[in-house]
Simulated scan of single mutants.
Amino acid sequence: MSIDVRRDVELADVTVQFRFTAHSDRGAVRKLNEDSYLASVPMFVVADGMGGHSFGDKASQAAVAAFGAAFPTDVPAAPQRVLDTIRAANDAVLDLTAEADFGAISGTTLTGLAFVDVGAEDNYHWMAFNIGDSRTYSWDGRSLSQMSVDHSAVQELVDLGHITKREAERHPDRNIVTRALGADDEVEADVWLLPAKGHQTFLLCSDGLTKELGDDEIARIVVFHNAQELRESDGLPITLAERLVNAAVAAGGSDNVTVVVVESDVIGPDPAPIGEDTVDRSSMANQLEETRPRV
């Protein structure tokens, strides 16, 4: 299951050129792929159904379907609509549990990136959000930066200084998440905003990628892929999303693996320099201020 799409979106004052690729694989061990994804302007989402739970695949599909139904194609999203859809996705997963046999549980992690109009000066932003341990990274052409913060037992140990990030990668409790869609009636997502400007690249993935490949190895593959692309005049036979997924499967593939890569170029008036406050948050939902990821 793979896509490679290029799309230009004409807005009132700028043109935004998008390229997004996605690929998903059940891995080398699992019989079923419980990951789902959505890749379509303005919304990009990866959901990882909780392994070992009943209806994990249906949970991730229900969450992604909620986002797919909520946003018109090629139109910037409203931030409040994104927040409302996170809650709707949680309700959709909870409904699966209510309809299932007694004792069955459904759940899924979620990481997402929405192209939004905040209705202020320099109004186009990327709105990122996550629940659980699926991740969103940014790539600046030289280095890979994890934007999201895992909601997991081992991340809490890292935050407390009890273990290092490298130790967390092999910790026996690394599969335990502390937040998920479908776990509670109310869901708390980390949500934050980044101005859309110039060329930007983002990578969304389920933990099937990061279980097998560390950040340094992911970055190495991105650099290699970009170098190969420069040398090819007729396009690559493989996308970056495919290359990353294939590398994770080759490294062990102990879990389902899904990657969505999003590139954007904003062509038009240059936005003002990025400051500490990139939008007038008084006009935004309080959740945007309260749930920005931990540093």
Rank of each mutant, 00 (worst) to 15 (best):
D215G: 14
E212N: 07
Q228K: 01
V5E: 11
V262P: 03
W139G: 09
E289P: 00
E10F: 07
S206G: 04
P237I: 12
G51I: 06
R294N: 15
L113H: 05
D185E: 13
D190M: 09
A69H: 12
V187P: 00
V295I: 12
A227D: 07
D140V: 12
Q146D: 04
D35G: 00
I267P: 11
A196R: 09
R166Y: 08
G112C: 13
S282E: 13
V257F: 00
L230T: 14
G275N: 11
A63V: 13
V222E: 03
V118L: 04
V149M: 07
D280Y: 04
V187W: 02
E10Q: 11
H53A: 09
H125G: 07
E289K: 14
A77T: 09
F129V: 01
W192C: 06
R170V: 09
D57W: 13
L32T: 15
L204E: 02
T201S: 14
E186W: 01
V187G: 07
A65S: 15
S36H: 14
T109A: 10
P293R: 05
V191S: 07
P42M: 09
R174D: 03
N226M: 10
R26D: 14
T15G: 04
T108Q: 06
L113F: 09
H171V: 06
D270L: 10
L113I: 08
F102N: 09
T111A: 08
V257G: 03
L113W: 13
D35S: 05
L181Y: 04
L204P: 03
L193Y: 00
F18C: 03
A39S: 14
R174P: 00
G107Y: 10
R281N: 07
V29R: 13
D117C: 07
E99D: 13
H162R: 15
D234F: 08
S106K: 00
E156Y: 11
E229Y: 03
L230R: 12
T108C: 03
V93H: 01
P237F: 01
G132S: 15
R142F: 14
Q146V: 09
A250S: 07
E212D: 07
T73F: 12
T136R: 14
V249L: 05
L288G: 09
F102I: 12
F20D: 05
F102W: 11
A12Q: 09
V149T: 10
T21E: 15
L288W: 10
M50Q: 07
R166C: 07
K31H: 14
S60K: 10
V75P: 04
D122Y: 10
V191Y: 05
V75A: 08
A78E: 12
G49C: 01
D117F: 06
N286G: 10
A251V: 13
F44W: 08
Q146I: 08
L110I: 08
G182T: 04
A285T: 06
Q228D: 13
K211P: 13
V9P: 03
Q80A: 14
